[in-house]
Write a protein that binds this DNA or RNA. Structure first.
Lengths: 297, 297
DNA sequence: CTATCTGATAACTCATGGTTATTACGTGAT
DNA sequence: ATCACGTAATAACCATGAGTTATCAGATAG
């Protein structure tokens, strides 16, 4: 065992694997091309396997190199997290949780969870960001997020879920609209009105659910406007551009300008899940999960 | 950002964290004590946090250092696995699976699984080891095992399971024993006979299940001999030292010297689970899991 | 109060990562 | 062809910093 592998090697490998050009990679690393060549060569000796095919024409990753690239990316992202964590602990915090959540959970549920969390772990700080389902999953997978709050049905393997809240849907109507809570009869009556929905791109499942409500009542909604943002939707309803169906929980704080009519009788419910990645090594997360599982058994 | 962290630092830290003595750690690392001192100091600068308390009296890990130790151990074990994996891929193998299994699955089930596996992934090599439940879990957690075959009920979080096989129990009786398959009446009849069981240490759940069978029939078994090993149990039965209850699947290959009487009417069943750690990054494992989940949906 | 631990500091040296200069080979344009 | 401009590998040199030895300052123990 002549040499020892170092992070330097891995960093060089990582950049070269991205650029697939020694010159370009060397420039990005602020070293000379021969220097990089030598280090990569050394690395291949250590691993006892070629990592790049040099066909005099092109530099390409070998099978082994392809595998290694993923792992190296993982290692560096992991080390980055460790650094943050160490400095957190050093500053007296137990750790930091990076939390993503849907706008539709921002009003009531997420604040409640954070409040509870803070009561039990006052030394854990949080970093909250509103974002759509899809992005949450993506960042979770990359270890760039610790906890997500999403509405969806299917989850990739390696993602754990815990149902936080089940909610009915509510109609959102302009103040001027003839239908009121008291005079409510049926969704069917609204078949001709234009609907405003959440964008389907970010959470197709949620969109399908909305559609199923309308379908159950025998009509296909006309949709002229979509938005990812609840406030925007309310604004549009307020302006008389259409009506909407949203999770009932969203009404907190918005009752002034629009009317809410809860649809308790229809079967559809929306479930808010707290999700996290099984393999996430953030110790703060581990504590939270432990607490969560103890609470609900 | 003055310096860059290197694996060297982490290795030194790891050893010092174990020894908690600069001299001793330096000796183990084959470097001089001042060299180690300097590298650790540098490391603390990089992390911007003290990792050791030096009280003029004793060297001890700080809170942050304690956390880091775990992570560093993880990183090195991970890199070790990566090295093996890279050399595997380089040698044409898709990868290697380290598989642990109970003796009671060795006869029929594990070979069948391996056979299927080999048909789909001939380039994945395996490394099979018989071991008790407990050890499998332990090695799995440490990423020293990829797949386990266990009989148990509860699993730690982070461990995934998949039921492979459900089996009835069978009585194991000496050839000379009056009770035969044909003449079978009830387990109760055996209340006075001495029983031979699997050791309770390694799988308390399994032991409890055995007990419940006897309990259901109104007796508490007398047990003089225990063993982890099925063959040993059969041998003891053969020698007339008692009778046993084992998963029916175990009889394959052993019918010569003892009689098996399958207990189809009692409710107890034993379930063999294939288990793995969610966060295991072995790509060969990922392939196998994917196949497994596709098969059974 | 000495003998012997401990870890930190200071000054030196030498291995090796990174450098420049050069070679060798490919491609594409003229 | 051959010239200009790519690519990466090789060789020889340089200089940074990891590891060295020597020493110091406290703590502990006989």
């Amino acid at each position: 065992m002549s040499y020892q592998i170092e992070l330097r090697h891995l960093k060089y490998f990582q950049v070269l694997a991205e650029e697939l050009k020694f010159r370009k990679a060397a420039d990005r690393l602020f070293i000379s091309q021969p220097g990089l060549s030598r280090q990569i060569k050394q690395m291949e000796e250590i691993f006892n396997a070629p990592l790049f095919d040099r066909n005099k024409k092109k530099v390409a990753l070998t099978e082994a190199g392809l595998y290694l690239k993923d792992e190296v990316d993982f290692i560096f992202s992991h080390i980055e997290n460790i650094k943050k964590q160490v400095s957190n602990i050093n500053e007296g915090k137990q750790g930091e949780l990076r939390i993503g959540f849907l706008g539709s959970a921002a009003q009531k549920i997420v604040p409640e969870v954070i409040f509870k969390l803070n009561k039990v772990f006052p030394e854990i700080s949080t970093n909250l960001d509103e974002m759509p389902n899809k992005l949450q999953i993506e960042l979770l997978e990359k270890d760039m997020l610790d906890i997500g709050f999403v509405r969806m049905q299917q989850f990739n393997p390696g993602i754990s879920k815990h149902m936080i809240h089940q909610d009915t849907f509510s109609l959102v109507l302009p103040k001027s609209h003839p239908m009121k809570k008291a005079s409510y009869e049926a969704v069917k009556k609204l078949g001709d009105e234009p609907f405003i929905f959440f964008s389907s791109d970010d959470s197709p499942f949620y969109y399908d659910l909305m559609m199923s409500i309308c379908e159950d009542h025998g009509f296909k909604p006309k949709t002229y406007h979509k938005s990812v943002n609840a406030l925007t939707i309310f604004k549009l309803v307020e302006e008389g551009l259409g009506i909407a169906i949203v999770p009932t929980g969203l009404q907190y704080g918005y009752q002034e300008n629009v009317n809410f009519v809860e649809l308790t009788h229809i079967p559809q419910r929306t479930e808010l899940y707290m999700i996290w990645k099984e393999s996430n090594r953030n110790p703060a997360l581990k504590n939270v999960i432990k607490l969560l599982l103890k609470d609900n058994t």
